[in-house]
């Protein structure tokens, strides 16, 4: 069985949810192996073993993290060759897509992004044109390199296993820009937009106060997103922007509040399973794609919903 190499950046103490999803998928396609940039702690090693990972490839030289993308891509390509991987799987973040892109050139291999399903022959299902088409695509040259969207696979519960063998991989540092400053943003304590199963998003109609949206998101265990009008106004961090020039999300539930539903906004959310829209204007275009729409004022509807959820839970 061919090795399916999963790219993992820095797991921290435990594997991230998306890492576990990729490992689960890899195990259905072949023999899972891992290319790991960061440190391999005991707990992560045990978890990898439990997902059936027999081999972990790590860069033998430090400092790849300071090189923008190029270093990690060079490492991934070298690891894929060392493992003689039949295919390579990554997450679907902007950085992961770029690492995939560059590794593709190094390995003379085709790259497919935004996969929602991958079958045994590595044929990929994905949505294109802002979700208006479903496409089946495959890699025809080289080792298939596929970036997989979060929540595309249900992560299996890890079982037993033994810690994998570690193989160092030499990487020559390529021409790259250097990251010379980094300021961490305060963590919100909420799930990331990429991974969240529920997203509560607000627009210009929020009028400066995201409090009612945050409360509802917390009651539902969701993430908070925004339209560009809201991020441009500075009411919320730019990284919360959903749409053509922001994030693309496909959660189980997307709650859109005070957002008109411009085409650039829809591009980032219309593959959500269920869309709920709250807007004062009965003619707002967002209602055209809503499964459940409320013509009303978000400042009264959202707090009432949050309170009702809390009440039903006690």
């Amino acid at each position: 069985m061919a090795k399916v190499l999963v790219y993992i950046d820095t797991p921290g103490e435990n594997l991230h949810k998306t890492d576990r999803e990729l490992l689960t998928l890899a195990a259905t396609l072949g023999e899972p192996a891992v290319a790991l940039v960061g440190e391999l702690g005991d707990q992560v090693a045990a978890e990898l073993g439990a997902y059936g990972v027999g081999a972990v490839y790590q860069p033998s030289n430090a400092g790849l993290d300071e090189l923008l993308v190029a270093g990690k891509a060079a490492f991934l390509a070298a690891a894929a060759e060392a493992a003689d991987a039949g295919a390579v799987l990554l997450g679907n973040t902007f950085e992961a897509k770029e690492i995939a892109a560059r590794a593709g050139i190094r390995l003379s291999s085709g790259v497919i992004t935004d996969a929602v399903a991958v079958d045994e022959s590595f044929a990929v299902t994905k949505a294109v044109f802002a979700g208006s088409y479903t496409v089946n695509a495959s890699v025809t040259t080289g080792r298939p390199i596929i970036t997989v969207k979060a929540n595309s696979v249900e992560a299996a519960a890890p079982q037993g296993g033994t810690a994998p063998a570690v193989h160092p991989v030499d990487v020559a540092a390529p021409a790259a820009a250097r990251i010379t400053g980094r300021s961490e943003k305060a963590p919100s304590g909420r799930p990331s937009l990429d991974e969240a199963r529920i997203v509560v998003a607000g627009g210009r109609g929020v009028d400066g106060d995201f409090g009612p949206l945050e409360d509802l998101a917390d009651a539902l265990g969701g993430a908070v997103g925004a339209s560009r009008a809201a991020t441009d106004a500075g009411w919320i961090d730019h990284s919360a922007q959903i749409g053509q020039t922001g994030k693309t999300v496909s959660p189980q539930l997307y709650v859109s509040a005070g957002i008109s539903g411009a085409i650039q906004q829809k591009a980032g959310m219309q593959t959500a399973k269920i869309i709920v829209a709250i807007n004062k204007d009965p003619d707002a275009p967002v209602f055209e794609i809503a499964d459940f729409g409320i013509v009303g004022d978000l400042t009264s509807v959202l707090p009432q919903a949050t309170e009702e959820i809390r009440k039903r839970r006690t």
Binding site: Y133, T134, V135, N136, A137, I289, A290, F292, I294
Partner: peptide, 19 residues
Amino acid sequence: WTRVEDAQPRPARSQGVII
């Protein structure tokens, strides 16, 4: 290096309940 095997238009989202 990649090939699109087929493309299906997704059914347009239809409007649900509006209250």
